[in-house]
């Protein structure tokens, strides 16, 4: 089945669609790269089961929106995918790398945006970004980092301490860090939260660019109407269970039905 190939990273090495075709000299059938595969995955916090029997396959390049009530398990699922939390049961992989056994490899392929931005208040915006550039091993000059801040609307605030920022500005700083990573997989926890209209527009543009560049995006969002503009599929989480069928039924009135 030939559908789409965006290039990707496998355990056997790094290759791209172009290099593969060059090697074979023929346009052969290429299978779809699986960005995420979860099988019977569960996660508990003590006695409380937050995720139950999650089965999910996401192809590379797709944008998937998770929605559900507060406490339904959206953030927990994102944190499990990010290797912040270990699954209590079941197994999963990201780009073929096991979430438990190859967590370090998984982390090399993802960028995570948490609700609060994940920034250091006693560092300036620029210092926060310098820190991220070091950890992502991107040798960028100060000018390039300032450009990155300007791209998310933080040029004026580049030398201000992040503790003086509003929640929206912290989120923008988190976005600048996300872009710096140039990761294959974006995990976004409530990306629209705390942002003003221009900030939400920025997220829309970044998501559109991510789709164009073949990036896989999983995002938890309450702003379903907005998310539907970029989503390839919507998954509904309710009490730790993932419902694709329910999502189709619930999303249908909003203009998207996806099984």
């Amino acid at each position: 089945m030939v559908k789409q190939f965006t290039g990707g990273v496998h355990k056997d090495g790094i290759f791209s669609a172009a290099s593969l075709l060059k090697l074979t000299g023929l346009a052969l059938e290429i299978t779809v790269t699986k960005a995420i595969e979860l099988h019977s995955l569960a996660r508990r916090y003590g006695a409380v089961c937050v995720l139950r029997d999650i089965n999910l396959t996401v192809s590379a390049g797709k944008t998937v929106v998770l929605w559900g009530d507060n406490g339904a398990g959206k953030t927990t699922l994102l944190k499990v995918l990010a290797t912040k939390l270990r699954p209590s049961r079941g197994r999963g992989s990201v780009f073929g790398f096991d979430l438990n056994k190859e967590a370090a490899q998984v982390r090399k392929r993802l960028a995570y945006l948490n609700v609060f931005g994940g920034v250091y208040g006693t560092l300036t915006a620029l210092e926060n970004l310098e820190l991220a550039a070091t950890f992502y091993q991107k040798p960028l000059s100060r000018e390039q980092l300032v450009e990155s801040l300007a791209a998310v609307g933080l040029f004026e605030a580049r030398d201000k301490l992040a503790r003086t920022f509003s929640s929206g500005m912290k989120k923008r700083l988190g976005l600048a860090r996300l872009l710096l990573a140039e990761a294959e997989l974006w995990l976004l926890d409530e990306p629209y939260a705390a942002l003003d209209e221009s900030g939400k527009g920025l997220i829309d543009r970044l998501l559109a660019q991510a789709k164009e560049s073949g990036r896989t995006v999983i995002m938890a969002s309450h702003d379903l109407e907005r998310s539907l503009n970029v989503a390839d599929s919507v998954l509904h989480i309710e009490q730790g269970r993932l419902y694709t069928g329910t999502a189709a039924a619930k999303a249908a009135p909003l203009g998207l039905a996806h099984g």
Partner: peptide, 10 residues
């Protein structure tokens, strides 16, 4: 601001 969570995910 969940900075440690971010640090662990680098």
């Amino acid at each position: 601001d969940s900075a440690f969570e971010q640090l662990l995910l680098y």
